[in-house]
């Protein structure tokens, strides 16, 4: 069963990856992706806002599509909200599949859709004040390849 967690608390990449990979005998490949808060020119922190309820529904819909399309054995999405400093982990995705191509592709698909279809908004706090991060055209364009 795929797992989706939307949380403000930090998570351990090692513990999550270990727990996700553990005890699988028919899975040949596990892929994990981790998103890290990047300092874009003196940024002190980032605030991530989300839409409780819709967030879980939207992610669950995206995960269901990936599970079906790549016949995944399992998937995991963790996404944080609240205040995060550069270097902190924002989110992670893990996919488990019989073969690696499906696991890689499904992880990329999940990332592309989470970027522009999961209701999160980022505000960066830097030396010149606070600014909302604008969505990029290329993030929207990335969806067309799927």
């Amino acid at each position: 069963m795929p797992m989706i967690r939307v949380q403000s608390e930090p998570f351990s990449l090692g513990d999550e990856a270990e727990a996700f990979a553990k005890g699988r005998t028919d899975t040949g490949a596990v892929v994990t992706f981790t998103g890290i808060v990047r300092d874009t020119g003196g940024m002190a922190r980032m605030e991530i806002e989300h839409y409780p309820g819709m967030t879980e529904k939207a992610i669950s819909g995206i995960v269901d599509q990936a599970m079906d399309r790549w016949s995944l054995d399992d998937a995991l999405v963790i996404h944080r909200y609240g205040s995060l400093a550069p270097g902190e982990r924002i989110m992670m995705v893990a996919t488990a599949s019989r073969h690696r191509v499906a696991a890689f592709e499904a992880a990329e698909f999940l990332m592309d859709y989470l970027k522009s279809r999961a209701p999160f908004w980022k505000k960066e706090f830097g030396p010149d004040g606070a600014e909302w991060v604008a969505a990029k055209d290329e993030d929207e364009d990335a969806l067309s390849r799927w």
Partner: peptide, 23 residues
């Protein structure tokens, strides 16, 4: 997710926001 032409009949919750920036 919907659009601005969509009917509101039967709808209970409407949310407005900028394009999403997850991931």
């Amino acid at each position: 997710l919907s659009d601005f032409d969509a009917p509101l009949a039967g709808v209970r919750e409407v949310a407005f926001f900028p394009p999403m920036t997850g991931g």
